[in-house]
Nucleic acid binder design. Structure first.
Length: 823
RNA sequence: GCGGGCGUGGCGGAAUUGGCAGACGCGCUAGACUUAGGAUCUAGUGAUUUUAUCGUGGGGGUUCAAGUCCCUUCGCCCGCACCA
């Protein structure tokens, strides 16, 4: 019989579907396991990255189930977002229609890959029954002061016609469409993620099962820096400007101040001054710079004197205030103290504008001179020119100076974060409407919980021009105030899709709940996610937001966990010819064509075998053939040997040498594959299964059919099929049936190895002389180091080699090697 | 600049605790079966001047023993970045 992958895959996929084979319920008698893969955006078709992501997740889910865990393995759709709306603009199809059609197609593709999802738990963020609770989340944040509206200078993508969160601007470009992002002064909704900056940072330490890379990316993104805020008086006025500095120890070295050109006080400071015209020209120039140019390290530092002087609060010195392109309004206070001697940027700026450079920290034992400096000195040293702090180590002085400033009321200790609040409003249609109205009398009013959802209207037009479609839909916009019943206008912005995906893993625990997003009871059973799997591109955005939501929900008593994802695996990309598969390069291999040509099992096997999960994987057509060949080899083995397969246990005490070899190979294989699955080393697990299959072929070759040991053949075939089943579920289920079994492999216990089969009487050990291998010999496995030494020294070849030399030392490692050190 | 990672045959990769470097697969070579082979099976396949020597980016070190530990250096990839 030939391996008919097509018929087999269709047969079992139908069987699983008809029997709801992967539906799961809470079961207090079993340990639970939550295996989750990042849900896809329904673009229309699966790509190889999806296949890889979901193949890894499926192996984990199936393996854990076989090991007796009650496994939650759900799938859904991150289905709000711009492509649907862009398609609507282009072809006039409503975003909803486009989205549901794509979901149907992709669900079908997932099913053809045989993934073990509980489809009863499927969620789609664009469905009313889901986004109603996304709106509920907004309300919970709003009620607790964590959602607020403010006017600010925000990122604006001219192509997407919407604002973007900081996290969605990559190198000054829109994360989605790569257009250059501009700035706009708009009133927008924010989530106060900065309130959680400290906890989001501190709890990174608790994420033991996360890759260091992701943890360090989040740490950098949150960007904590410790220092002080210091108040400087504006000369000739009562007003003060506050600066943030991480180096209060250099305060005596401040020789000028710099301010962001966008700073709100600039206008007042320069008005009427002789420098006004020059300053205004400079502000215009900086405004005209692109975000990328502005924030690039290569951009030359430029500035202009404001005509204003400041007073150093600690030395009383009068110093000039400049505007400069290297100071940013959105970090710290937008005002920086210039310490030319001890900060490289300040050094360059001071050199350019001939500002004084004053050393206040000397490298220990040196006497540096200002005029000799070619770069700033930023390392540790001894204080000088710093009044009462002279002679101290600068680290000690730093603390003392903060204390001094706090005492005098001129400054205080301050921790600053790079993290900004999360801008969540989007001027687009296809998203969850922000559940807020603006009432003439009551002002901003949140929609009460029991009136959710705020439905997305369907009678909207997509012109791609001007404002958001919702703002032009009068039926939607004109409403009544839930508080006073008077006239009110709805918020026309929708929420960033990352809001929807910040809680979907909770919804899977209780997907049909129509009263609440989820019940505490259900999330208490299933959470945390034991294994989360997805691309590293979500290292900051999604993973940070999801952690934030979990903490907010924890604080409000809705969940018991403070971190949602116990273990995280970031899988590598799928490449072809060394570069990322993309339409423009023309190196795309579609999952469909591979399934068509070789079947889903081959696709899964190849993708898991070709590289470890975290590493990039280069697609290789001939290696795919190799995977297909291996499945055929397994198929033939079962096909030819199944009639000899006995059901009983192998009597390990009564085997000949050939039989022992196979018995050993099978049990060693189970041991190795189990260990490899436990550490997600699927490529080596597969190679071990291949070795087991090779051992079976060797046995088959060496023994005549009439002498087959039926129990042994049965053990080998069953073990191979069981070990392969999480990886290639269709062919193994068929083979399982051929071997006379009827149960679903998914529910069959994972094979156990027999410790006794692994016991060997003799082992091969290496004999080294001075660390170089000189011979190998078979010795009794239980020989102790002393015994091994005696055997080795009695070996003729060794005797000859060490003849006339003095044996200094002999090291013997049981069952491994003997090293004889001679002189 | 800061942070994370990587560097092993012709290729993908293995070596989990310092203990036989190159498992397994791809490719290649030969043989068997065959009218035929792009099927299948078997054997071989790091290099070289092949009783042996060399070999895990380079240099140095620790050790009886180093791909693995330490120091140093080069190259590549990813993330952040005029962050005060």
């Amino acid at each position: 019989m030939k391996y008919d992958f097509k018929g087999i895959e269709e047969k079992w996929q139908k069987n699983w579907e008809d029997n709801k084979a992967f539906a799961i319920k809470e079961n207090p008698d079993k340990p639970k396991y939550y295996a989750l893969e990042m849900f896809p955006y329904p673009s229309g078709n699966l790509h190889m990255g999806h296949v890889r992501n979901y193949s890894i997740g499926d192996v984990v889910a199936r393996y854990k189930t076989m090991q007796g865990f009650n496994v939650l393995h759900p799938m859904g759709w991150d289905s709000f977002g711009l492509p649907a709306e862009n398609a609507a603009i282009k072809n006039g199809t409503p975003p909803a229609d486009w989205t549901w059609k794509n979901i149907d197609n992709m669900r079908d593709q997932l099913k053809r890959l045989g993934f073990s999802y509980d489809w009863d738990r499927e969620v789609a963020t664009a469905k009313e029954e889901y986004y109603k609770f996304t709106q509920w989340m907004f309300l919970k944040l709003f009620e607790n002061g964590l959602a607020y509206k403010k006017k600010s200078f925000v990122n604006w993508c001219p192509s997407c016609q919407t604002v973007l969160a900081n996290e969605q601007v990559v190198n000054g470009k829109c994360e989605r469409c790569k257009s250059e992002v501009g700035k706009k002064d708009l009133e927008q909704w924010f989530f106060k993620i900065t309130d959680y900056a400290d906890r989001l940072l501190a709890d990174i330490d608790k994420l033991k099962g996360w890759p260091d890379k992701v943890k360090s990316m989040q740490t950098n993104w949150i960007g904590k820096s410790e220092g002080a805020e210091v108040k400087f008086k504006i000369d000739g006025t009562d007003k003060e400007l506050t600066v943030f500095t991480t180096r209060p120890d250099t305060i005596y070295g401040v020789s000028y101040m710099v301010m962001a050109p966008e700073h709100p006080i600039v206008d007042e400071l320069i008005s009427g001054k002789p420098e006004e015209a020059e300053c205004r020209a400079f502000i215009e120039k900086v405004r005209g710079m692109s975000e990328i140019a502005r924030s690039s390290t290569d951009t030359e530092k430029e500035g202009v004197f404001t005509g204003t002087y400041m007073i150093n609060p600690i030395s009383g010195e009068k110093i000039p205030l400049y505007l400069a392109n290297y100071v940013f309004l959105d970090y710290g206070t937008g005002v920086v103290m210039g310490v030319a001697a001890h900060d490289q940027r300040d050094f360059e700026f001071a050199k350019k504008y001939n500002l004084p450079i004053r050393i206040v920290i000397q490298p220990e034992g040196q006497n540096m001179k200002e005029e000799d400096m070619t770069e700033a000195f930023a390392a540790e040293g001894i204080m000088e020119n710093s009044g009462e702090f002279n002679g101290m180590n600068n680290r000690d002085a730093l603390k003392k100076i903060i204390a001094y400033m706090e005492e005098k009321g001129i400054g205080e200790r301050k921790i600053n974060f790079r993290l900004r609040d999360w801008l969540i409003s989007r001027q687009r249609y296809w998203g969850a409407p922000i559940p807020v109205v603006y009432c003439e009398k009551c002002g901003t009013v949140a929609i009460p919980e029991d009136q959710l959802p705020v439905r997305l209207p369907e009678n909207v037009e997509f012109t791609g021009q001007g404002k958001s479609p919702l703002s032009e839909c009068e039926d939607f916009m004109n409403t009544t105030c839930p508080k006073c019943g008077g006239k009110a206008v709805r918020e026309s912005d929708t929420m960033d899709t990352f809001v929807c995906s910040s809680w979907y893993f909770l919804r899977y625990c209780d997907p049909k709940n129509d009263k609440m997003p989820f019940s505490k009871e259900k999330t208490d059973y299933w959470m945390n996610v034991d294994q989360y799997i997805g691309g590293v591109e979500h290292a900051i955005l999604h993973l940070l937001y999801a952690r934030f939501f979990t903490k907010v929900l924890y604080d409000q008593g809705y969940v018991s966990c403070q971190e949602p994802f116990e273990n995280l695996l970031t899988q590598g990309m799928v490449l072809k010819d060394g570069s990322k598969m993309s339409k423009s390069v023309g190196n795309v291999v579609s999952p469909e064509e591979i399934i068509e040509k070789y079947g889903a099992d081959t696709a899964r096997l190849f993708i898991l075998f070709a590289a470890p999960p975290e590493r990039d994987l280069d697609w290789n057509d001939t290696a795919v053939e190799g995977a297909y060949r291996f499945l055929n080899r397994v198929w033939r083995a079962v096909d030819e040997l199944s009639e000899y397969a006995g059901g009983g246990a192998v009597d390990g005490t009564n085997l000949n040498e050939t039989e022992k070899k196979l018995h050993f190979a099978v049990n060693a294989g189970i041991k190795k594959v189990t260990e490899d699955f436990d550490r997600f080393s699927f490529n080596t697990a597969i190679s071990s299964i291949m070795e087991t299959v090779n051992a079976l072929y060797q046995y088959k070759d060496a023994v005549n059919a009439e002498n087959y040991n039926k129990e042994l053949i049965g053990e080998a075939l069953r073990s191979i099929v069981l070990m392969l089943s999480p990886i290639v579920p269709h062919i193994t289920q068929e083979l399982w049936e051929i071997l006379g079994n009827s149960e679903n492999l998914f529910d069959t216990p994972w094979p156990k190895f027999d410790e006794r089969a692994l016991v060997v009487s003799e082992v091969e050990v290496v004999v080294q002389i001075n660390g170089k291998i000189r011979d190998k010999m078979m010795i009794s496995a239980d020989l102790d180091p002393k015994g091994m030494q005696d055997v080795a020294l009695a070996n003729d070849k060794i005797k000859e080699l060490i003849e006339g030399k003095q044996v200094v030392k002999v090291i013997a490692v049981p069952q491994k090697l003997i090293n004889i050190v001679v002189k």
